[in-house]
Amino acid sequence: MSVVELRDVSKVFEQGQTVALQGIDLAIEAGEFISLIGPSGCGKSTLLRTIGDLVQPTSGTIVVNGKSAQRARRDRDYGIVFQDPVLYDWRTVAKNIALPLEMLGWNRTRRARRVQEMLELVELGGFEGHHPWQLSGGMQQRVSIARALSFSPALLLMDEPFGALDEMTRERLNIELLRIWQETSSTIVFVTHSISEAVFLSTRVVVMSARPGRIAELIDVDLPQPRTAETREEARYFELVTAVREALAHGGADRIVEETL
């Protein structure tokens, strides 16, 4: 069964009549790791937000877990991670992770147990009493991931989660995210600017083009699992990186042709 199904989804922003998304058709299967990649302004973040019912599409239908996006949001079917960790300064690491659990009405002992599991999952054991500002950027983002996963949502939406981090931290967190993805067997939709990140992480890459935002190409990533640092050195990896790069260039070329017409 598809976890997410988008049919002919379009989004026009009132201000300036910007067509953010046009005619998006996409089905995401359970357990997939999907990356949305494209130039700035191609609507990849908007697409992610429409799946999360944080932005309403102008037309088209969105089905999440067999129900409307709004129903899915109300049922807390997904967890979300933004580019910035968006942690609450006044809460400790443990209490930040417990925030969605409080919303779900979990009692204290159950929350505490889950927070411990999550801290282990993101390898932050011992930091539960720290406040966000006492952690590095990479650690903050791991807290944010732990918070999104704490209530075991089937779907994880990630909007450039590692975009603000340095290259080394990013590569380490990439491998950690893949481990978490396999341990929790969740479905991930991942927005990124980075071609190598998209190829390394995904089972499928959705290449988008800008103005209007639409899907230019779908690329299956058939690299074997589990992926390691060595995956980045395989010939197939480079082929796929090239394929995504060309698809991006092609999407851009299409746009130039359209504009000259």
């Binding site: 999360g52 949001r73 109300r74 807390r76 933004f82 925030l99």
Partner: peptide, 21 residues
């Protein structure tokens, strides 16, 4: 932070929850 508000929406938090939390 508007994204913190979005985060609360993603938890299906209502007006009062967003206010107090």
């Amino acid at each position: 932070d508007p994204r913190a508000v979005e985060l609360m929406h993603s938890y299906a938090a209502g007006r009062w929850r967003i206010l107090w939390k």
